[in-house]
Amino acid sequence: MVSLEALHKILVIEDDPASAELLKEVLEQVNYRVIVAHDGRNGVKLANQELPDLAIVDVMLPTLNGFEVCEQIRSNQALMTLPIIVLTVFNEPQHRVRAIKAGATDFLNKPFDRLELLTRIRSLLDLKDEISKRELFQDVAYCLMTALNSRSPNVASHSRRVAKLVEQLGMRLSTPTNMISELVTGALLHDIGKLGLILSPEVVPEDLSEDERTIWKQHPLIGEKMFSRFHRPIVQKIIRSHHERVSGGGFPDSLAGPALEFPVRIVALCNRFDQISKGEPENWGEAIKTLQFETGQGYWDSNVLKELEKLLKLYSELGMNPYKGL
């Protein structure tokens, strides 16, 4: 099995041969791939050519000093987020400030401690990998939403409206900021699995045969599978479970009670509300009456419904349309 370290390439820019060899030896012992440059200008050239995962840069270098190396590396768009550890014998604050301004990510004093160096490298690479995964997730989500909008503008519009309501409700329910982001993303993608159906994304389940309805009910599972390679548990639960009910009887898992987590409850209710109101404020009253009846039957979370009613009342009093611009 290939180690995580072996998947990462580290550029060492160090003019002292003994120091460069020591760094190379320490890094290769834990299976990092290492490339070495002995002056600043060649270091920048290698960074642009090799696109390493992390750079270790000495301050005192010929041709370009470490600060200039950082500045030139950062001028390459592809290296804007490259973690850079600056090695220095200087410990004065002004040198650290200058390094930060030049684009350094972290600092390490010479002579360095082996364990501290490896710990900082691992931490920076883990953060870089997480950022890369999130950027990839956003790219994939954008492409799929673009495809959904092309195949079914109505379903895509429905998803955007649900996401908008979910965002507003999340704030009213004092949801942490990072959770709101996941809520909105899950709401936006909740119907993305309809892209994988042989049926039109815009079909109404009541108009389908029993066999067709069985196929239609697969869309939450298809949507969840589209993002199975990403670790976004809240988003994945929302996509999978947005047709579940508090009292049970929903699909695909017939979840009930505590098994239906709060983020899913918010999206499930907003999804149902928009199915009825179709984004038209004049339909809000009818939609709320239907939700009140269904909540009495145990379908939806009564606390979420109360907050939705308050939110819609506020919109009405202010003459606001929350969907404007979507």
Rank of each mutant, 00 (worst) to 15 (best):
V2Y: 12
L4C: 14
L4Y: 15
H8Q: 12
E14G: 01
P17M: 07
E21I: 03
E25K: 14
D39K: 09
D39H: 10
D39F: 00
G40D: 02
G40W: 04
R41D: 13
R41P: 05
N42S: 15
N42I: 15
G43A: 06
V44W: 02
Q49R: 11
L51S: 13
L51G: 10
L51D: 13
D58V: 00
V59A: 02
P62R: 10
N65G: 00
N65Y: 01
N65K: 01
G66I: 02
E68S: 10
C70P: 03
Q77S: 15
M80S: 15
M80H: 15
L82I: 07
L87G: 04
V89F: 06
V89Q: 12
V97H: 11
V97F: 11
R98H: 09
I100K: 14
A102R: 02
G103T: 05
A104C: 07
A104S: 03
A104L: 02
N109V: 10
E116V: 11
L117R: 02
L117S: 00
R120I: 08
L124T: 01
K128D: 10
E130H: 15
A147G: 11
A147S: 10
S150D: 15
N154W: 09
V155I: 08
A156P: 09
S157R: 13
H158G: 05
R161T: 00
V166F: 06
Q168I: 15
G170D: 08
S174W: 11
P176D: 03
P176H: 02
I180Q: 00
T185L: 12
D191H: 01
I192H: 09
I192V: 01
G193A: 07
I198F: 13
P201C: 03
V204A: 11
L208G: 04
S209P: 00
D211T: 07
E212A: 07
R213T: 09
W216Y: 11
Q218H: 10
P220Q: 06
R229A: 13
P233I: 03
V235C: 06
R240I: 05
S241K: 14
V246F: 01
V246R: 02
S247R: 12
G248W: 01
G250M: 01
L255P: 06
A259S: 12
E261G: 07
V267M: 00
A268E: 04
I276D: 02
S277M: 00
S277H: 06
E280M: 15
N283S: 13
E286M: 14
K289Q: 13
F293Y: 13
E294R: 00
D301R: 01
V304G: 05
E309P: 05
K310Y: 13
L311W: 11
L311C: 12
L318C: 15
Y323C: 04
G325R: 00
L326H: 08
